[in-house]
C-alpha cells in the first residue's frame, strides 16, 4: 500500500473504515456485526486481503453478496455462500472452537482494559439509557483471536470502569482475563474510535494511544479520556485512506447509508413526506 497515493479529502467514517480494513490480514476469518465494520471487511477483501472470509452470526460463511448488506441477516448473504447454517453453527463450531481470527465489536462505553459496555448507562435495573445489549458481541470478544472495537469517542464513553461489562476485554489487566477462564491467545487488539486508534500493552494490558486522527492532537485525545491515558513513544497521526481505499469505500455505499447518514436521513424523510408515510 506504500506505493499508493493517500487520499486528501475524506470523512471520519471513511478514515475509520480504512483503519479497520488494515487490521485484517489476507486469509483470515472475520466475524462482523452491523455498520462500519462490514465496510472495513469488504474493503479489506477488495484490496490487500482477497482471501479473507467473512462469517455472520446469522449462519452464513464466505458469502458473495451482490450488494452491501445493511444487516447481518441480509438475505443476499445466503445465495452463493460457502455455508449457510444457523447461529449455533457459527458460535459453537467456528467461534468457540477457535477458528475465528478477527471479531469486530461495537460499544457505548469502554474502559482502560478494553472491557466494553453495550447494554446500559447507569444501573442495569434503572438505566439512564438502555442500549441494544450484547447480541453476538460478547461471544466475538470472548473467542476471536483479535477483537477490534469500533466506537464513537466521547469523554463519558472512555471511562475508568464500565457501568456494565457486556464484552470482556482484559478485565482487570495483566493476566486476569485468562485467569477468569477466557481462552488464551484472545483479546482486544485495537480500539478504533472517532478520535484515534488505541492498542493494549502486552504486559499490563492497559490501553494506550497509538495514533490520533488528522486535525487532532495527543492532548485533545487525552482530554476526552477519563483516566490518565498512556501514549505510545512513537505516537503519530492515523494513516489516511489511500485513493484506492477511498474509491472502493464509496463504491460500497453509493447511497450514503453508512457514510453520509445525516444527508441520507434527510433525503428519505423528504420522500416519506411526499408519499404520505403516516
Amino acid at each position: 500500500m506504500t506505493d499508493q497515493k493517500y487520499a486528501k479529502d475524506f470523512t471520519l467514517p471513511e478514515l475509520m473504515i480504512a483503519a479497520g480494513a488494515r487490521e485484517i490480514k489476507d486469509g483470515e476469518r472475520v466475524l462482523i456485526g452491523v455498520g462500519l465494520p462490514l465496510l472495513s471487511a469488504m474493503l479489506a477483501k477488495r484490496t490487500h486481503a482477497p482471501n479473507s472470509k467473512m462469517a455472520y452470526e446469522t449462519g452464513s460463511f464466505d458469502s458473495l453478496p451482490s450488494r452491501t448488506p445493511f444487516s447481518v441477516v441480509d438475505p443476499d448473504l445466503v445465495p452463493r455462500a460457502i455455508f449457510a447454517g444457523q447461529l449455533t453453527d457459527i458460535m459453537a463450531l467456528f467461534l468457540q472452537r477457535g477458528f475465528v481470527d478477527v471479531g469486530f465489536v461495537g460499544g457505548a462505553q469502554v474502559d482502560k482494559y478494553g472491557n466494553l459496555n453495550s447494554t446500559c448507562f447507569g444501573d442495569y435495573f434503572k438505566p439512564d439509557v438502555r442500549f441494544p445489549g450484547s447480541g453476538g458481541a460478547h461471544d466475538f470478544g470472548t473467542f476471536a483471536k483479535r477483537s477490534l472495537i469500533v466506537m464513537v469517542h466521547e469523554k463519558r464513553r472512555f471511562v475508568e470502569k464500565c457501568d456494565y461489562v457486556t464484552t470482556p476485554g482484559y478485565l482487570r489487566g495483566g493476566n486476569s482475563r485468562y485467569e477468569e477462564g477466557l481462552p488464551e491467545g484472545t483479546g482486544p487488539a485495537a480500539v478504533i474510535s472517532t478520535r484515534g486508534v488505541f492498542r493494549f500493552s502486552p504486559e499490563t494490558k492497559e490501553m494506550y494511544l497509538e495514533t490520533f486522527h488528522p486535525g487532532l492532537t495527543v492532548d485533545s485525545v487525552k482530554e476526552n479520556v477519563n483516566w490518565d491515558l498512556k501514549v505510545s513513544p512513537i505516537v503519530r497521526e492515523t494513516e489516511p485512506p489511500t485513493e484506492e481505499q477511498l474509491r472502493i469505500t464509496r463504491e460500497l455505499d453509493p447511497e450514503g447509508f453508512f457514510l453520509r447518514r445525516g444527508e441520507y436521513n434527510k433525503k428519505i424523510k423528504a420522500q416519506a413526506e411526499n408519499m404520505g408515510w403516516l
Binding site: 458460535m91 459453537a92 468457540q96 450484547s134 460478547h138 461471544d139 470472548t142 464484552t167 470482556p168
Partner: peptide, 15 residues
C-alpha cells in the same frame, strides 16, 4: 454448558 459469557456482567447480574 457453554464456554462463553465468562468475565461479564451478563453472568453476574441476574434479573
Amino acid at each position: 454448558p457453554i464456554m462463553s459469557q465468562k468475565g461479564s456482567s451478563i453472568n453476574e447480574i441476574k434479573a
